[in-house]
Amino acid sequence: MRLIRILVPTLLLAACSQPAPPSAETAPTSPPAATTAPPDEAPAAGLSPDAVEPAADAAKPAKPAADGDVRQRIDSVLGDAAQYEAVFIAFQTAVNGGDRAAVVEEIRFPLNIANGAKIAGPGEFQRNYERILTPAVRKAIAAQTFDTVMVNQQGVMIGDGQVWLNGACLDKACTRTEVKVVTIQ
C-alpha cells in the first residue's frame, strides 16, 4: 500500500508546471531529494526522498553561498522569487507577532499538517492554532531568514520542513500565480 502512495503522483498543479505541495504524510523533516525531472516539468509530488534518485544538484546547502542565490534558485525552479519573499516575510511577521488573522491570510486551504491530516478552512485552523503552530514550529519560523531557506521543486522550506510555501496557478495559462503556506507540521 505504501508503494502505491509513493508511486501515484499528485496532479494538483501539473497543468501550470508548478510543483505540488508536499503532503504532511510524506513531507520530509530534512531537505528532500530533488527529482530527476527537468525544472520545466512538474515533479511527481508526494514521493519519499528515498524513493527517487537525487539529481546532481540535490545536495544544495541550506545556506546559499552568496546573497541572492535563493532568489535566483526560486526564479529558476518555482518562479517569481519576490512573491515567495513577500509571503515569507508576511507569514513570519504574523506568526512572530501572534496575529492569527494575518497568519490565516498567508495560508492556502486545505492546509497539510502533521501525520497526513488536513485543515479544511480558517475556522478549523483558528480552533487548532496552538496545536498546529507549536512552540517548536514558531521557533523554527522565527529563526529562519529568507536568504537561508531551502528551495526545491516542492517549494520553499522553512526550518527543517516545519513549513512549506508553494505557488498555485490562478488561470489556465498560469500567467497569474499565488504563493501561500501549504504545509505546517
Score class of each variant (00 low, 15 high):
163 V>L: 03
132 I>Y: 06
91 F>L: 15
173 A>Y: 03
134 T>L: 06
149 V>S: 03
158 I>R: 07
76 S>N: 08
136 A>P: 06
113 I>S: 07
95 V>C: 07
172 K>Q: 09
125 F>N: 01
43 P>H: 08
145 T>Q: 10
152 N>E: 08
32 P>R: 04
49 P>D: 00
40 D>M: 08
96 N>E: 11
97 G>N: 12
130 E>S: 13
144 Q>F: 04
46 G>D: 02
133 L>G: 07
141 I>M: 05
87 V>G: 06
48 S>T: 03
84 Y>Q: 03
133 L>Y: 09
35 T>I: 01
99 D>H: 11
106 E>C: 13
162 Q>F: 06
31 P>N: 08
130 E>F: 08
84 Y>V: 08
51 A>S: 05
139 K>T: 15
117 A>M: 09
153 Q>W: 05
58 A>I: 08
54 P>W: 00
90 A>Q: 13
100 R>N: 14
134 T>H: 02
53 E>V: 09
40 D>F: 09
60 K>Q: 14
139 K>A: 15
46 G>R: 00
73 R>T: 06
131 R>W: 06
105 E>D: 14
124 E>S: 14
146 F>S: 05
139 K>E: 13
36 T>C: 04
152 N>D: 13
86 A>I: 08
103 V>R: 00
93 T>F: 12
29 T>V: 12
148 T>N: 12
122 P>V: 07
143 A>I: 00
169 C>Q: 06
117 A>G: 05
74 I>M: 05
149 V>C: 10
98 G>W: 01
89 I>H: 11
116 G>N: 02
29 T>Y: 13
31 P>K: 03
139 K>S: 15
162 Q>M: 02
51 A>I: 00
63 K>L: 14
163 V>S: 03
103 V>C: 00
127 R>W: 04
40 D>H: 10
157 M>Y: 03
160 D>K: 15
89 I>T: 15
152 N>T: 07
165 L>K: 03
85 E>P: 10
71 R>F: 09
149 V>P: 02
95 V>P: 06
74 I>Y: 01
125 F>M: 10
99 D>E: 13
87 V>W: 01
28 P>V: 04
34 A>Y: 00
106 E>M: 12
145 T>Y: 02
85 E>K: 15
84 Y>E: 06
160 D>W: 14
102 A>K: 13
165 L>C: 09
57 D>I: 11
110 P>F: 01
60 K>Y: 11
85 E>Q: 15
64 P>E: 07
53 E>P: 00
58 A>C: 12
89 I>M: 10
60 K>G: 11
107 I>Y: 00
29 T>D: 13
125 F>C: 07
164 W>H: 11
88 F>P: 07
147 D>L: 04
148 T>R: 11
92 Q>T: 03
96 N>S: 13
110 P>K: 03
98 G>S: 10
161 G>H: 07
70 V>I: 13
93 T>S: 15
104 V>S: 11
112 N>E: 10
151 V>Q: 02
60 K>R: 15
80 D>M: 11
132 I>H: 05
49 P>N: 01
84 Y>I: 14
51 A>E: 04
52 V>L: 11
56 A>V: 14
144 Q>L: 01
144 Q>S: 06
97 G>T: 07
92 Q>N: 07
32 P>I: 10
111 L>Y: 01
97 G>R: 05
57 D>E: 12
164 W>S: 04
60 K>P: 07
